[in-house]
C-alpha cells in the first residue's frame, strides 16, 4: 500500500504522528487520509468539492464532506484537529491567508504543499519564450488554469512572516514518474525543487 502513495504524500505522511486527528482540505480521492488511517491509525476527516471524488473517499471508508474548503473549515471547533493538511491546493485558493488562519484555528499544526513557481524550468520558459510558463508541474495555460496563486518557495517563507505562522519543517522536492518517485533538493531549492512542502505552526 505504501508504494501507491505519491512521493510528496509520503513525506507528508512521515510528518504525521500516529493516533492524531487529521483534516484533509481538498483531499481528492482520499489516498493520503486512507493511508494515514490504516498505517497510523489517525482519526480522519476530509473535505472535497467534487462529487465523484467524495464517493471514492466514502467507498474507501474514510469520512469526507462534499463542499468548498473555505466554507466547510469554518464549522469546526477551535483545535478540533492535530493537523490540517492542504496538499497541492493552496495555489487554487482565492484568499490563502484566510485559509491558513482557519487551518491554524482548527488544528495545532498545518501542512501546506504547492508547486514551486520559482523552478528553473518555469523561469527559463518565461525568459526564452516570453509566454506564461507551462510545465509538467504547472500544465495549464494562463486562461484555463485553476492555479490562480502562483508562488515560489521563497514567497511562502516571506508569507509566513506576513500572515503570522511559523515554519516548523520544510521539504523541497523534485518528483518524477508521475510523482511516484522523487528526491529531496538541498542545493538552491527555490531554483531546483518542483514542489515545496511545509509543516507550519502557530506563532
Amino acid at each position: 500500500m505504501n508504494d501507491h502513495l505519491r512521493y510528496d504524500l509520503k513525506i507528508i505522511a512521515s510528518w504525521i504522528e500516529p493516533e492524531s486527528k487529521v483534516l484533509g482540505l481538498g483531499c481528492g480521492e482520499g489516498d493520503l487520509l486512507y493511508w494515514l488511517k490504516k498505517k497510523k491509525n489517525v482519526t480522519e476527516r476530509g473535505i472535497e468539492i467534487e462529487e465523484s471524488k467524495v464517493v471514492k473517499c466514502i467507498e474507501k471508508g474514510i469520512s469526507v464532506l462534499q463542499g468548498d474548503i473555505n466554507e466547510e473549515i469554518e464549522d469546526y471547533p477551535d483545535n478540533a484537529f492535530d493537523y490540517a493538511i492542504c496538499s497541492q491546493t493552496l495555489q487554487q485558493v482565492y484568499e490563502p491567508s484566510n485559509l491558513i488562519h482557519s487551518m491554524m484555528r482548527v488544528a495545532k499544526m498545518g501542512v501546506v504543499s504547492f508547486p514551486n513557481f520559482g523552478h528553473i524550468k518555469v523561469r527559463m520558459h518565461l525568459a526564452f519564450t516570453g509566454r506564461a510558463p507551462v510545465t509538467k508541474e504547472l500544465p495549464y495555460s494562463w486562461h484555463d488554469t485553476p492555479n490562480i496563486r502562483v508562488l515560489s518557495l521563497n514567497d511562502f517563507q516571506k508569507f509566513s512572516n506576513q500572515v503570522g505562522f511559523r515554519i516548523l519543517k520544510k521539504a523541497a522536492i523534485n518528483t518524477k514518474d508521475n510523482h511516484r518517485q522523487g528526491k529531496m533538493v538541498t542545493v538552491l531549492p527555490n531554483l531546483f525543487a518542483t514542489y515545496g512542502i511545509f509543516l507550519i505552526g502557530k506563532e
Partner: peptide, 18 residues
C-alpha cells in the same frame, strides 16, 4: 444538519448526488 454535526465534532460524511 451536517454543519451542526461538525460543530459537535461528530464523524460525518456528506455527499450531494447529482
Amino acid at each position: 444538519m451536517v454543519k451542526a454535526m461538525k460543530k459537535n465534532n461528530l464523524d460525518v460524511s456528506f455527499c450531494e448526488i447529482d
